[in-house]
Design a protein around this nucleic acid. Structure first.
Lengths: 261, 261
DNA sequence: CGCTACTTTGAATTATCTCAAGTTGAGTGG
DNA sequence: CCACTCAACTTGAGATAATTCAAAGTAGCG
């Protein structure tokens, strides 16, 4: 079932369409909003589950405002966060009706929904639409791959750093700011943990380390990064530094100053 | 640079096109092969690197025969295997020229290559082409997500079991065989390890366990699974069974028989 | 003011990694 | 047909990063 079907349905107006352009020229939501009165926009409260894994989806959706979470649930309440969806991201699947993962709103937000068959005809008539979708898919896929590298190869501190860097980069895009960046990141430590294959306690300890080293402060949905380059350095130091230090200590040498010390 | 540019270039003939249909009705390679003389087919030896991360790709490629490996390299020789590519899989990126990961042949095989701009015009003229690409992308994305669940949430034994199940399912597709399945899987333990975020030794120990329990035998590129349902059971038993057993032992109770014991 | 949900800290436990030796087996060339 | 080689696989024992369990702290909110 699609729980959002009970949400108020708002037809997209011309003004709305113009407003959606804030997502940039590649914005899928704005494109869709302007092409049929059957493209609708729903508002959803934080915490709403848009759909669950295995749901039969009648719509293809694009997030137009707010943050959402894509995840898969396992046994014993464990879950894997697959991606943080930001405005412009596709929620749903073009190739099949069955949902391969769940999606839930992290903040209040808005979702543009297109009936599947309407999307099909829009796509047939407008090649550029499918291209926009492909680009979104590939971007999401690249993020998933980076994610896999983190979970598979990096130590806890690096994973957390890498995720913070990703969040900053997704929010500051073309901006080349590198110092004292501060963004809203409406997520809890547990979301970071579930995304990185760690437990909440481990994420907490990693964040404390980053804070102690003045590399990043993440509290109550607000992320501050004094020096993005340095943080990226920790993210890309998989284990090498820690490893070297460890060995040196074992040999009785004085430990080198690490980024987090 | 694209190292495969030095490979012999073979124009696709009508017969080739017909032959490529073994990939099934959704086969991208066969579709592409029939639509322009500028679509070429290359042969590549096992071990060939088709492209590296950050290469500037002039072609969009589809694997038509053999197995390939998508991966990202890190420090100290560590790498994360992102996906095993089988015939029909897209190698390359529609939305941008820059490669986001490396690809290397696991076996001898063939690759159908389309110049990027030609792909663009083919896609504009044939909406169904882009749809085929989207479906491939979504399938790869779903695999990546399953992969993340494994790496992030499962114990070593479950991860290995899950990967073996995935390989079997991809090779037997619509077949509903469930007993005594045997397939070629031209990979080594180290590929499994790099795919699952484990070390070779750990994969070896997991495989030994599976073999001892008569759940799967994987040796020299050949995988035999006596009972797919049972193996799937181990894959989906994240830790619960082992965990319960562990606790029971600590309490002094007799350990329950586990699948791998 | 007292929930409730989230975060923090500590100590013990453990799955996996590391390091270091073997062992196996397919391929090679005498 | 028999060494020989080399890469892949196997096995063991010790080290460690992360988990688990348990118990306090905090902060937002009605």
């Amino acid at each position: 079932m699609q729980s959002f079907r009970s949400a108020p349905i708002v037809l997209v107006t011309e003004q709305d369409s113009a407003k959606l352009d804030v997502e940039g020229p590649a914005g899928l939501a704005s494109w869709l909003a302007g092409h049929s009165y059957r493209v609708v926009r729903h508002h959803h409260a934080a915490g709403t589950q848009l759909f669950a894994e295995d749901d039969d989806l009648e719509y293809l959706c694009v997030l137009s405002r707010g943050w959402a979470l894509k995840y898969k649930s396992l046994f014993e309440g464990r879950r894997q966060v697959l991606d943080f969806a930001l405005p412009g991201d596709v929620l749903g699947f073009v190739g099949e009706r069955r949902a391969r993962h769940a999606v839930e709103m992290l903040t209040d937000g808005e979702v543009v929904s297109v009936p599947r068959e309407l999307f099909g005809s829009l796509a047939a008539a407008n090649p550029e639409l499918m291209l926009k979708v492909v680009r979104q898919l590939e971007r999401a896929s690249t993020r998933a791959h980076e994610h896999m590298v983190s979970i598979g190869c990096r130590a806890a501190l690096s994973r957390v750093s890498r995720l913070l860097v990703e969040l900053v980069e997704r929010r500051t895009l073309s901006s080349n700011a590198r110092h004292d960046i501060e963004i809203d990141a409406p997520i809890r430590q547990i979301h970071v943990a579930d995304a990185l294959g760690l437990r909440g306690e481990t994420v907490c300890r990693a964040l404390k380390q980053l804070e102690a080293a003045n590399l990043a402060t993440f509290r109550r949905g607000r992320l501050r990064v004094p020096d993005l380059v340095k943080l990226r350095g920790v993210a890309e130091t998989p284990d090498a530094e820690a490893h070297t230090t460890r060995k040196a200590i074992r040999r009785g040498a004085a430990p080198a100053a690490t980024a987090a010390a």
